[in-house]
Design a binder for these strands. Structure first.
Lengths: 340, 340
DNA sequence: AGAGTCTTCCAAAGCGCTTTGGCTACTCTG
DNA sequence: CAGAGTAGCCAAAGCGCTTTGGAAGACTCT
């Protein structure tokens, strides 16, 4: 059942039927009703390929997926996706993942824009002066950044959490508890979120005349093993930290293991706070010692990004509004006063 | 730059240019060379929307993503995706995720097939007599199942690992080590993989005249918490198992925690084997006691599924070939002889 | 030389929609 | 009541590709 057939059945032109269905004003209410009714009865659904060719709109949102042998997709991605999908489902939006060589995403961005494969894209894990951002900005496709970049002349729309504030709060708590030697086990410090978190910790320390020692900061990809290694190194040195702030629950698993291996205890010998993106399959309250966290649901962020993307596509949202979500500090058993 | 312009520059018809580019035989080699050369020089790329409208082919593969408030996407998904993306990238295949109400995926399947949005789909986490399978089979879109279903009259193409064999091997090893009371902490037993794993364990036990006690089998979604709960329950009862086989590394985290909480040790009091899908961020050799595993890279499976999907789209693969990958049993420190 | 067969190309008809540019008929002004 | 304005509809021209059904010329074969 296509437009031609439907319009023929109704003894109307394709123009009128099309307009009736798409809500244009130059069609009488009575005709519109007739059309909509017939369309429903016959299960007419406009062919998206045809519509896309005619309008250039695809009804899909895009994400360029960095891939490669040595490239691992972040496990956070799936949670973000849950949220995105949640929203997208109720709006019949599809998501197209365009895999790209991690070292050359530009080609892919250009392709999907030139081909009008998607109506909007989102960008995640941005870095300062991220080239993808400059690119999509000049390409002129609607987009939203999940996270933030830095060092651009122009503004851009984004959704981020207050990483600096969160880690500031966490570090401040630890300082208030008397800790003098803090360490930060961070994610990849080429990404903005990690930079912000470090900034937050430094600011909290500075407020009490403390500093983050050169060797008291690690940044690597967030695996259990890297968490373990970092913690081992930190805790075995002289002047070991009495408190650690850690950028992910997965790394925190490794920290906990290291502490155990060294015969130390939490929070007796070490206080630990980690950031929790809220995974359904690993919860901080279920750590051997319930873990204090800075918490922000990455899933909700996914839903919000989808919502704003949809708004931008339909012209409801304009300009470069940035949105920063506050982060909860949830105190559990893994923090205590500094050992004497 | 579109076909019209390009053909005009070359003083050729659109027909000939199109054919030259698409490798049709009725064009002379010299002309073809000229055309291809000019296309490259002017950066001509056929418009996919137009091509799609004309041919009905989209150059994309599809996946229906079950979503909903209470629905969590499996963390394995992201690893599978890594592999899929790896292959898809080198073949300019995009993946479109169509979010669907988890309880009504049929509508979405029908939509993407009717709209010809994708050239093929894959289905994951199948159950016995899975309705999605019957559906895509009748809808006539090329597909591959990652995993297996059961109880159909028809054959279908799939890629699966030898879950039964793997868990048979694991259980057999434990039996050989003298364990009489085994338990299985499984995934959701409505899914085929879980059924196969249980079958494997039972078969190994039966071979030595043993059985899997009614209360020695748990099946739930594979979270750390559920692993913990299951292990607690098992180990606190009288006649507690001396060995556990566990369907996921994430659940195994919970098992290890339970063992610790109860003041027991691995492998002294309990031997543990888990299935490892090979996550980059959590490795069995890094467990407090290195974990014995049945190992199979879900990422490689993703790449293979993409490869076969591409082959089916282009008609290189036909029929309902099933492919079952063997699984490695990797023995590490978490297993030992049964306690006396 | 005429008939048949390839080879190589082309014009035009789709694919199924949206949108432009009218064209009627009817209502409203002054 | 002439002229302007408006509501409601339509024919046809895109969108940019693929594919059908020839056609022209070169070549082979009798």
């Amino acid at each position: 059942m296509n437009l031609k057939q439907l319009s023929h059945m109704l003894s109307l032109s394709q123009t009128t039927v099309s307009r009736a269905l798409n809500g244009y004003p130059e069609v009488s209410e009575e005709t519109r009703r007739r059309v909509i009714d017939a369309a429903k009865r016959h299960g007419y659904r406009p062919n998206p390929s045809a519509r896309r060719l005619a309008t250039g709109k695809s009804g899909m949102i895009g994400y360029v997926l960095p891939t490669g042998n040595a490239v691992d997709i972040d496990p956070h991605f799936v949670e973000f996706l849950s949220g995105l999908g949640d929203y997208a489902r109720s709006h019949e939006l599809d998501l197209v993942l365009s895999p790209a060589d991690a070292d050359d995403q530009e080609t892919t961005y250009r392709r999907i824009v030139a081909n009008r494969q998607v109506d909007a894209v989102y960008i995640s894990s941005p870095r300062p002066a991220d080239r993808r951002l400059a690119l999509v900005n000049t390409l002129g496709i609607p987009f939203i950044v999940h996270g933030r970049s830095e060092g651009f002349e122009f503004d851009y729309p984004y959704l981020d959490i207050d990483n600096e504030g969160a880690f500031h709060e966490a570090a401040r708590l630890l300082v208030q508890l008397g800790h003098k030697r803090l360490a930060l086990i961070n994610g990849d410090d080429r990404e903005t979120f990690a930079i912000h978190r470090e900034r937050g910790v430094r600011r909290a320390l500075a407020a009490s005349g403390l500093t983050l020692g050169e060797r008291h900061i690690c940044s690597t990809t967030m695996t259990e093993e890297n968490g373990y290694r970092a913690a081992r190194r930190l805790l075995e040195e002289s002047g070991a930290p009495t408190a650690i702030v850690c950028s992910s629950l997965i790394m925190a698993l490794g920290v906990v293991r290291a502490v155990r291996d060294l015969g130390l205890t939490i929070p007796g010998d070490l206080s630990l706070v980690a950031h929790d993106d809220v995974f359904p399959w690993l919860r901080p309250e279920n750590f051997p010692v319930p873990l204090s966290t800075t918490r922000s649901s990455i899933r909700l962020a996914g839903a919000r990004v989808a919502e704003r993307l949809a708004a931008r596509i339909s012209g409801l949202e304009e300009g470069a509004r940035g949105e920063v979500w506050p982060v909860d500090l949830v105190v559990r058993g893994s923090v205590a006063g500094a050992p004497v």
